[in-house]
Structures are given as C-alpha cells and as structure tokens.
C-alpha cells in the first residue's frame, strides 16, 4: 500500500494530480487506487489537498493513515500534513513556495518556476508529477504517459506532456 498526499492551494491542480496518478495506477497499471479530496469554498487560493492510495489489493479503508510521501506546494499544506508523514517517508516540496525545517527526508523542486518558464504556472502540478513519479515509482512511466492526455484538455496535452518530462528529467 502506497499512501501519497498532495497539498497546496486551490487552482494549483492538486486534485487533478491525484486523479492522474490514480488513473494511471488503476486503469493502466491494473492496481487498485482510491483518491479523496478536500477543498475549501474558494476556487483558487484556498487550502486544498488530495490523498491517494495505491494498492495491489482492494482498498477498504479509503483514507491515509500515515503517508509515505507528502507533495507540498504551499506552506500551509506543508505545515498541516508534515507530521502525518511516516518517519521514513519523503517530503517533496516546491522550494519557491515552501520553507522547511523537517528532520525527515526532503526533496525540492522549483516546479512553479519551471512551469512559468514553460509558459504558464498551471503546469506546475504536472512538472511536480514528473518529479514525483521518478522518485516514488508509484506507477509506471508508460501508464502516466497514457493517463495524462486523458486527464487534461485536448489543447494542453502537448504542453502537459512536456511539463511532465521536464519534471521527470529534473529528478
């Protein structure tokens, strides 16, 4: 059982990240996965998180007990969920947006900056995903490459795939 938490602001694509990985896992990798989301009333800027469970067996309890990975794209999300991560778990953060002093293992990527270089900050989540997949090996690369086009608007497919590769390479 792999437990991943994505946390950030509404509008950063936090929930979509969960869906993309979950879809890759459950449809293309033939595993079981459950994705849950929590968000505030704000469309943008509110605290937002998604929790993703990936397992080879049917998932009964659908929530994270202690997460293996925390992907934090906001300070608020980081401080809220930092303690939830297992002691040997890994924190993956956007280092422009999050300051950390955790004793746990921390990996940093300037995903928003990379995305802005690519054209728009909305790709930050996919850049982050590229990095996350490389690090966690939660799902196969092929599955992700199939899942991304299905989960984003058609006109952004190329850009998203490019962003994904960028993040993957960064790792």
């Amino acid at each position: 059982m792999l437990e991943i938490r994505f946390a950030g602001f509404g509008g950063q694509g936090i929930i979509r990240s969960g869906i993309i990985v979950g879809r890759a896992a459950s449809i293309y990798d033939n595993k079981y996965s459950t994705m849950n989301q929590a968000f505030g009333p704000e469309a943008r800027g509110g605290a937002c998180s998604s929790q993703l469970l990936i397992s080879d067996k049917k998932i009964l309890y659908p929530y994270i007990t202690r997460s293996d990975y925390l992907v934090a794209m906001s300070q608020e999300g980081y401080s809220k969920f930092e303690s939830e991560v297992k002691d040997d778990g890994v924190l993956i953060i956007d280092d422009d947006l999050v300051n950390t002093d955790s004793t746990k293992k921390v990996l940093k990527i300037p995903s928003t900056r990379i995305a802005e270089e690519l054209g728009h900050r909305i790709f930050a989540n996919v850049v982050m995903l590229g990095y996350v997949i490389r690090v966690t090996k939660a799902v196969s690369l092929e599955a992700m490459r199939k899942a991304i086009p299905e989960s984003v608007p058609e006109r952004f497919v190329d850009k998203n795939l490019k962003a994904f590769e960028k993040g993957y390479e960064y790792a």
Partner: peptide
C-alpha cells in the same frame, strides 16, 4: 460528500 468526491475505478 466522501463517496461523491471519492475517485476510484
């Protein structure tokens, strides 16, 4: 809401 927003296969 949990089931409504839970994403699964």
């Amino acid at each position: 809401e949990c089931v409504g927003h839970m994403t699964e296969k």
